[in-house]
Amino acid sequence: MGWVSAGLLGLVIMWVTVMVSRGVWDVETQRSRLSDKQYRPSNKQDAKRLLPTSRYRDLGGGGENRPLRAHELPNPLNPTEDALASLVLSVPHAAMQDEGFLKSRKFMKYSRYVVLLVFTGFVLPLFTLTYASGAFGTERESRSLVWLMTRPIPRSGIYLAKYLGTLPWCLAFGLGGFVAVCLAGGDVGREALTRYWPAAAMGTVAFASLFHLIGAIFRRPVVVGLVYVFFFETVVAVLPGSLKLLSLTFYARSLMYNEAVSAGHPGQMLPTMTEAVSSETAWAVLALAPVLITLLGMWLFSRSEYRDDE
């Protein structure tokens, strides 16, 4: 199982590396989406091209640049209109000069796709699911749980110990995966790491407790967990209304969103998270949920019979 996890993590890291090295989330290096297939300048080049000086230059020779569109043509005969057009067409270049804007956009794009979508939507739940549900799941599959149950220790203690025992694995692959994904993301990734790691850690612990419970209750915990993650969590996350308050990732995402906003990044760049709850609520839920879920699990487990011939 370890190498499967490592493989998946490797895929994600490769993807992040490719995307970052191609500057996909960087507004400067992003290619503009013009219908022209031959000429695809980066946004920075295109913004420069739209400056009055280069427009006037292009008017003469044309050069390697794309021919100017009708509204981009300099119009010296009508100075007022030309000045207005120059002003408007200079906005992209002005934006490119704003370090804060460039950084924020890059960071928020990275947050949106890498952290919120791929990490909290896939890597974190899947890894915690496989490791946390495996605590009892693998013992059940290999029918060796009986050895624990015959020891003179309370059943609730077995449940708790199993949880604490799987937690390092979950953290290693959940939080460790987060660290790896962030380090692959360069500067932006490092900023994401420092801002989001508490949320990632809390999310890991909360998910681990939930999947540990599922592992103790169901005979096929992985299947139940998959249905929960890829139906409930994903569907609920996009639904409007208060149903998403039942989703654990929502709180982890809220924490991340609030963290990003408090660092001065524009929250509108994370459109799925505009209904985020406050940091205090998210902290409280993410801290309380594992405790309550584990207590519930201890209670249920101490009452349930173990039969290997089921």
Binding site: V4, W15, V18, R40, F122, L126, G137, E141
Partner: peptide, 28 residues
């Protein structure tokens, strides 16, 4: 086993579409 099996399937059918979709969009 079920757990790694699920990981492989989810990797094939959830992660790869996510990643390949974003690569197609960005790398064209």
């Amino acid at each position: 086993r079920t757990a790694p099996m699920a990981m492989i399937w989810m990797g094939l059918f959830v992660l790869l579409p996510m990643l390949s979709g974003s690569l197609v969009e960005s790398v064209d």
